[in-house]
């Protein structure tokens, strides 16, 4: 016996969302490492090794060379990994990039269902569904859902949770 993957993919536009996140992270990392390396490299501190004084640009170059492939791959890997499903009154979701997570939350234990939209998400008409139980480990977030899907799912889960409510937290 093995656990299969959840049936539903998230919205295709989620790739664009994660690409925007990657881009933002790339800008921060590249600019940050450039500024720090230049600051240290052009200083006259004695503990700085010689090669750092001469060619401090190596540091941001290495950072970019290491991060660029990962950041470029992340949106597409995430789109392949992030999936969800509602079956048998259990929400099953898979997520992650380097570390993967599979979360099973029975609707009967759900306390609140929220949908939230960040900046980029609003731009792309996407939403994140947050399903909370009495435990953080038993709570789930589904990123990159189309807004309509998230709204419908939130509505459905909230209604069903009320029907099933048993207070064995």
């Amino acid at each position: 016996m093995r656990i299969r993957e959840p049936a539903q993919r998230v919205s295709p536009k989620a790739r664009l969302l994660w690409l925007l996140h990657s881009l933002a992270a790339f800008v921060v990392l590249a600019a940050g490492s450039y500024i720090v390396a230049r600051w240290i490299g052009t200083s006259r501190w004695s503990w700085v090794p010689d090669w750092m004084h001469e060619s401090w640009w190596i540091v941001p170059a290495v950072v970019i060379a290491l991060c660029l492939p990962a950041l470029a791959a992340e949106p597409f890997v995430r789109y392949a990994v992030h999936r969800w499903e509602l079956a048998g009154d259990v929400v099953y979701a898979r997520s992650g990039f380097l570390t993967r997570e599979w979360v099973f939350v029975p609707v009967s234990r759900i306390q609140t269902v929220d949908k939230s939209q960040g900046w980029f998400e609003r731009l792309l008409d996407l939403a994140t569904l947050e399903i909370r139980t009495a435990s953080h480990a038993g709570s789930s977030r589904i990123n990159g859902l189309a807004y309509g899907t998230a709204a419908d799912l939130a509505e459905l889960l909230a209604r069903r949770a009320e029907q099933l409510r048993d207070d064995a937290t």
């Binding site: 380097l98 570390t99 993967r100 099973f104 064995a168």
Partner: peptide, 16 residues
């Protein structure tokens, strides 16, 4: 058993 409200399985790259 009745206190369990959900499951989370986690796998890092190395665990995979």
């Amino acid at each position: 058993q009745r206190a369990v409200v959900g499951w989370r399985l986690r796998q890092t790259v190395f665990q995979r």
